[in-house]
Design a protein around this nucleic acid. Structure first.
Length: 835
RNA sequence: GCGGGUGUGGCGGAAUGGUAGACGCCGGGGACUUAAAAUCCCCUGAUCCUAUAGAUCGUGUGGGUUCGAGUCCCACCACCCGCACCA
């Protein structure tokens, strides 16, 4: 070989074009091969591919190419999650249409993905803002409506009283609107809901089948669904009404010292004639709607003149209106047990209400004083009449049984999961296919009138809902009575777009959302890869849509993703001078431990390594890196070092190391010597072991370990003398790196005289006989510390190993004549001598 | 506030309860070269030391179980992710 360097700037494009021309990665659903559907969470077209995308898609790409080498027919598609707020923000800031902005972003990002050489089936590409896509989504939505899975009710949103617009949680900063700076209020609107709670039990039970999901994600979903059992019962109020409450701790009922209702509870609303009560309810409306905001806000209460009668003691307890009680959970009213619930404790402390101990470690500690926080732990019941001495579990059952027998309450199951509100007061989303008619009420758009498309001529100058302001779009006729009517102006939450896109990838008929026969062939997704930030919402919604569509007979799949993998983020050091503006890596020169601003030469503080973000300016653009080092070096970096579920710190030194390795491999591939003869058993054994180990590592998505093994085998092959074994090892390395560094692999494959694409090659075969070693190294410990190691034949009897261990001079010196009390021998591994 | 996770050399990390630090990066020394780049070789957890040897310490902190703990148990600390209208 004369040319000694691999040149990605020519090779990358050449092989990308070759794959395109051959249709190498176009999935054939009629193939006889076993099917494998590999999917990464599709991107939002924000404008540029970032390193997080590169990492995510590289992992999926390695899996897809590997599965193909193992003989599978692989479906590995790509598309665009194209609706969302940033497009409307761009419209306001840059005066471009959200659609035009989105389309040009897609074009730019697609070109970027192509330059990285991903093995994607681009014939199935779509964007969720395509009317063909969202029209089918509208049809599915109407099917769910017909099946009773959708309803409409009032719900709270963040309201900006200055801009007169609904704000997303993200747009509420410290309780204030992000543009106006006005104090945000809660406001009620009529909105559409998907009845995900109808599937709460199924979604919980279904987690059990997901063997290849991370336990942590399943646990998070389980807690999110939040199945709890408890007691629902009614207090008799002093005004003659009954107040239903729900509690998960009926065992602590004797510790109850107050009752509280939510500010929007009917009991509170009925008192709103009083100016003080009205003012308090108004006060409760302040602030945003997030759980974090509600739970960290100061606990506020208003003591009403009403009292509630304790069901056992008959005591009259004060009734409060409280800001920490949620109308959405349980019945919107709670019994307050300050001794054993932290929120109740804080509330009781503030309003000087009795705090009674009713659970103790032991009966003898019934009178132990309470500390400065609630005790939510387990124990026995005390100070509770007939419950005294019972365990928490027994007491719960006893109280529920007595309530049911007495007819004043019953044991119930309550879910933390709430129905999914899908109405958004925005333009750039799927129009909700309903019509509001004064005569007929709410009428679904007939399916033959779908898709309901977005109008193009909209203005974003004034805040609020652009569809509502449009001159003509909302005007239509009622499908029922033919009279004048208005279209629904809200659009669907973008999470609905990502709840079924994986089904559309599997088949794309024109006249239907999907083809059930194709779904049967490809689903479930064999490997789904994406960020941990989607652990709950997106994944739960996608599971829900799959089950909901399955329940109405669309297909026969219950769980969409057989295996899930959540990858870590790509991080980078941060740079700034004092409290000044952040500097990007490109604006900084590193010298040893120190860093200096290129512009001005000032010393720059090297800050923490955090997720790459625009706000910290610690971003590295994949395009520049690919231009400098080629796609394969970047791909290799993404797979090296950090375990894929952890964060990956980007560094210039690291990518340079990867580039050097690309060149090292290139030189090695040039050293296949067809005239070489003879066997190099040690090297051959290493190669066979690596073939098995790398395959196992890829299947476990432990790419960092696969990379380490390839480094080891490469080092051994470089040092070895020419032989047939060495040629075998080099070719094995070539095939093993093919899924990871496909451009280099194709170029070397061609150089070795192969005419076919290595992308179509099969994974190298191994000889099982070559996997076992004949000798093992055994560690000898004394007093728990390593004293010596010995070499012994594999599988040697315990007695022989013990004798060898005791014969060691170093071991004898350490024992120093002491009595040997015990010798533990772990075959082929270790001897531990206890004196 | 609630739920989930992570913590090992200068850095990223490896390690079925069994030799802690594989592999990579950084750094140091050397070879090659007129020189540089590239490449190759050696060293590289800390401390002590009579120094090719040996000893002690060492996996966030404090306890515990075990012949043996990075790994299991208990308590704590720090950081990260999510919290339902960001995607």
């Amino acid at each position: 070989m004369t040319e000694n360097r691999f040149d990605p700037s020519t090779a990358d494009g050449r092989w990308q074009r070759a794959w395109d021309a051959a249709g190498t990665f176009t999935a054939d659903s009629n193939s006889d091969k076993p099917k494998s559907y590999i999917l990464e969470m599709f991107p939002y077209p924000s404008g540029r591919i970032h390193m997080g995308h590169v990492r995510n898609y590289t992992m999926g790409d390695v899996l897809a190419r590997y599965k193909k080498m193992q003989g599978c027919e692989v479906l590995h598609p790509m598309g665009w999650d194209a609706f969302g707020m940033p497009a409307e923000n761009a419209a306001m800031e840059k005066k471009v249409h959200p659609g035009a902005w989105t389309r040009s972003n897609i074009e730019a990002m697609k070109a970027q993905l192509k330059r990285i050489g991903f093995a994607l089936d681009w014939t199935r590409e779509f964007a969720t803002c395509d009317p063909e896509y969202y029209g089918h989504e509208q049809a599915l939505f109407l099917d769910m409506y017909a099946a009773g899975l959708i309803d409409r009710r009032s719900s709270e949103v963040n309201w900006d009283p200055v801009d007169m617009t609904v704000l997303a949680n993200e747009q509420v900063i410290d309780g204030k609107g992000w543009r106006s700076g006005a104090e945000v209020e809660k406001r009620k609107l009529d909105q559409w809901f998907l009845k995900i709670t109808d599937f709460a039990d199924e979604l919980l039970e279904g987690l059990g089948e997901l063997k290849d999901w991370p336990d942590k994600v399943k646990l998070m979903q389980e807690n999110w669904i939040g199945k709890s059992s408890g007691l629902e019962f009614s207090f008799e109020l002093s005004n003659g009404e009954k107040l239903p409450v729900y509690t998960t701790r009926p065992d602590t009922i004797f510790g109850s010292s107050f009752v509280a209702v939510a500010a929007d509870h009917p009991v509170a609303q009925a008192l709103a004639g009083d100016a003080d009560v009205a003012a308090f309810i108004e006060e409760c409306k302040k602030g945003g709607t997030t759980a974090a905001a509600l739970e960290t806000a100061e606990k506020l209460g208003y003591r009403t003149p009403i009292t509630a009668k304790h069901p056992f003691t008959g005591e009259a307890m004060p009734l409060f209106i409280a800001n920490f009680v949620l109308m959405d959970y349980g019945t919107g009213a709670v019994m307050g047990v300050p001794g054993h619930d932290q929120r109740d404790f804080e509330f009781a402390t503030k309003y000087k209400l009795p705090i009674t101990r009713v659970v103790a470690k032991d009966v003898s500690e019934a009178d132990a004083p309470m500390g400065n926080e609630a005790e939510a732990g387990d124990g026995v019941i005390v100070n509770s009449d007939f419950l005294d001495g019972k365990t928490v579990e027994d007491a719960k059952a006893d109280v529920i049984a007595r309530a049911e027998a007495g007819g004043w309450g019953q044991g119930t199951t309550v879910w933390r999961l709430r129905d999914w509100g899908i109405s958004r007061q925005r333009y750039w989303g799927t129009p909700i296919p309903f019509i509001h008619c004064d005569t007929c009420g709410i009428v679904p758009v007939p399916k033959d009138q779908l898709p309901v498309t977005l109008p193009d001529d909209v203005d974003f100058e004034t805040p609020g809902n652009p569809l509502g302001r449009h001159a003509t779009w909302k005007r239509t006729t009622c499908p029922k009575c033919g009279g004048a009517a208005e279209r629904e102006m809200d659009t669907l939450d973008t999470f609905t777009n990502s709840s079924w896109y994986f089904l559309r990838f599997a088949s794309q008929p024109v006249d239907a959302p999907f083809d059930p026969a194709e779904i049967a062939k490809w689903m479930p997704v064999q490997h789904y890869i994406g960020g941990i930030e989607h652990a709950i919402l997106h994944l739960l919604y996608a599971r829900f849509w799959t089950r909901a569509l399955s329940s109405i007979g669309k297909f026969d799949v219950k769980e969409p993703f057989a295996a899930l993998f959540t990858q870590g983020m790509v991080t980078h050091e941060t740079y700034r001078v004092g409290d000044g503006p952040w500097l990007s890596p490109a604006e900084v020169r590193i010298e040893g431990e120190k860093a200096f601003a290129i512009d001005g030469g000032e010393e720059v503080e090297r800050g923490r390594v955090v997720k790459m973000s625009k706000s910290k300016k610690n971003v590295v653009d994949p395009d520049n890196i690919i231009a400098n080092y080629g796609a394969d070096a970047v791909r290799w970096f993404m797979l090296s070092d950090s375990p894929p579920e952890r964060d990956l710190p980007w560094s210039e030194a690291g990518i340079e190391g990867c580039y050097r390795f690309v060149q090292r491999l290139w030189r090695l591939f040039g050293q296949v010597d067809s005239s070489a003869t003879g066997e190099d058993k040690a090297l051959a054994r290493k190669a066979h072991q690596a073939i098995v180990a790398v395959a196992e590592d890829i299947e476990a998505l432990s790419f960092n370990k696969a990379v380490a093994r390839i480094y080891e085998l490469t080092g051994a092959a470089e040092k070895a003398m020419p032989s047939e074994s060495r040629n075998f090892a080099i070719r094995a390395i070539l095939h093993m790196i093919a899924p990871m560094m496909p451009h280099l692999a194709e170029e070397a494959h061609e150089l070795l005289g192969e005419s076919a694409l290595i992308a179509d090659a099969t994974w190298p075969a191994h000889d099982p006989a070559m996997l076992v070693e004949d000798e093992v190294t055994i560690a000898i410990q004394h007093k728990g510390k390593l004293r010596d190691t010995i070499t012994a034949p594999k599988g040697a009897p315990k007695e022989d190993i013990e004798a060898l261990a005791l014969a060691s001079e170093k071991v004898q010196r350490s024992i120093d004549g002491a009595d040997i009390r015990k010798v533990i021998v772990v075959p082929d591994r270790l001897v531990n001598i206890v004196t």
